[in-house]
């Protein structure tokens, strides 16, 4: 954790209201978007973000300063987002507990991506967004943390509390799912 973050945490622990504001302003955008990416709902994302910051500021005394602050905040946000999905589905959901890594596997007969699929990547944001929304929530989270937040793999593993190898496998599978969905859209449209 950088010196600025250490100072920010120290001031928050001293109940400095300006430090509270600084922390919320620094992370509100990323937290809202992570929650939105996982839950798929702007209302749920707003609720999750609010609860995340309340928990962060109330439990800052338990925070380990040797860990990145961003990772700790995202971990709280992603767990709260999963709680929302759990309430919706009425079944337990976790990033770790995947009974089957049900992503697509490599098919040697597959000729690989062609020019059509490349063109479909130029789809409008809305169309591409709809395609991403079809991914399971744990893939959406991992894709968001990697490409939107530009987190390294080890930090993603720490944030989602999963092994490093699992991060690598799931990112690969997320890519494969997107590719197959692009092919499917091309053949059905």
């Amino acid at each position: 954790m950088g010196g600025d973050e250490r100072d920010l945490v120290r001031r928050c622990l001293a109940m400095d209201e300006r430090a509270y504001r600084e922390l919320v302003r620094a992370y509100q955008g990323p937290v809202v978007n992570l929650a939105w990416r996982i839950t798929g709902s702007a209302d749920d994302a707003a609720e999750v973000a609010q609860e995340t910051f309340i928990r962060v500021l109330r439990s800052l005394s338990t925070y380990d300063p040797d860990r990145p602050l961003r990772s700790w905040i995202f971990k709280i946000a992603s767990n709260l987002s999963l709680d929302v999905i759990r309430r919706r589905k009425r079944r337990p959901v976790s990033f770790e507990d995947l009974s089957s890594e049900d992503g697509p596997t490599f098919d040697p007969a597959d000729p690989g991506p062609g020019p059509d699929e490349g063109m479909r990547l130029e789809w409008s944001d809305e169309r591409f967004e709809a395609l991403i929304a079809e991914l399971p929530e744990y893939y959406r989270a991992i894709v968001h943390l990697r490409y939107r937040e530009e987190m390294p793999y080890d930090m993603i593993a720490e944030t989602l509390d999963i092994p490093l190898g699992t991060v690598k496998v799931r990112l690969h599978r997320a890519h494969e799912m997107i590719r197959r969905k692009l092919i499917a859209r091309g053949t059905t449209s």
Partner: peptide, 16 residues
């Protein structure tokens, strides 16, 4: 992404 919902900061500050 989506924009930050208005009043988030104030709601958090009020609660904490």
């Amino acid at each position: 992404g989506i924009p930050v919902p208005p009043g988030l900061e104030e709601r958090v500050l009020r609660a904490v």
